[in-house]
Simulated scan of single mutants.
Amino acid sequence: MSERSASSSSYTTISGEYRHEIEIKRSRFITVLRRSETEDQARELVADLRREFHDARHHCSAFVLAPDRSVQRSNDDGEPSGTAGAPMLDALLRRDTTRGVADLSDIAAVVVRYFGGVLLGAGGLVRAYSESVSQAMATAPEVRRQRMKLYAVPAAHTEAGRLENELRTAGTVVLGSDYSGTGARLRVALEDVPEVVAAFRQQLAALTSGGPDPEPLGTEWVDLP
Results as ranks from 00 to 15, higher is better:
80 P>E: 06
152 A>I: 02
107 I>E: 05
170 A>L: 13
96 D>G: 08
103 D>L: 04
175 L>I: 02
169 T>V: 11
180 S>C: 10
96 D>T: 12
113 R>T: 04
83 T>F: 12
174 V>R: 08
145 R>Q: 14
133 V>L: 06
149 K>T: 11
159 E>C: 05
115 F>Y: 15
104 L>D: 03
113 R>E: 04
100 G>A: 08
126 V>M: 03
110 V>C: 02
114 Y>E: 07
158 T>K: 12
134 S>Y: 05
116 G>P: 09
103 D>S: 08
87 P>E: 02
150 L>Q: 03
165 N>R: 15
132 S>H: 00
112 V>I: 14
95 R>H: 14
140 A>F: 14
78 G>H: 05
167 L>D: 07
170 A>F: 05
120 L>I: 07
86 A>Y: 03
101 V>M: 10
157 H>F: 10
154 P>R: 05
107 I>V: 14
157 H>K: 08
106 D>Q: 06
126 V>Q: 04
102 A>S: 15
115 F>A: 13
93 L>F: 03
149 K>D: 15
166 E>N: 11
130 S>V: 02
165 N>G: 13
157 H>R: 10
129 Y>L: 02
102 A>H: 06
162 R>H: 15
118 V>K: 09
94 R>S: 13
78 G>R: 04
122 A>W: 01
173 V>E: 15
115 F>H: 12
101 V>K: 12
164 E>V: 10
156 A>K: 14
120 L>E: 11
111 V>S: 07
92 L>H: 06
144 R>E: 14
103 D>G: 07
100 G>W: 06
112 V>T: 09
165 N>V: 06
91 A>F: 02
153 V>Y: 00
97 T>P: 05
127 R>T: 02
92 L>V: 10
156 A>E: 15
113 R>W: 03
120 L>K: 11
88 M>R: 00
108 A>L: 02
165 N>P: 01
177 S>N: 12
91 A>K: 00
134 S>G: 11
141 P>G: 10
149 K>A: 15
131 E>Y: 01
92 L>P: 15
178 D>L: 06
97 T>A: 08
163 L>I: 11
142 E>V: 09
120 L>M: 12
109 A>E: 02
155 A>S: 12
82 G>N: 02
143 V>S: 12
82 G>R: 01
126 V>W: 01
102 A>Y: 04
121 G>L: 05
117 G>Y: 08
177 S>P: 06
170 A>I: 09
161 G>P: 12
115 F>T: 07
160 A>R: 10
135 Q>V: 07
117 G>W: 11
129 Y>V: 00
99 R>I: 09
169 T>S: 11
112 V>M: 04
178 D>K: 04
85 G>F: 00
175 L>A: 10
96 D>F: 04
90 D>C: 01
101 V>S: 14
148 M>S: 13
92 L>R: 04
78 G>W: 00
129 Y>R: 02
110 V>T: 05
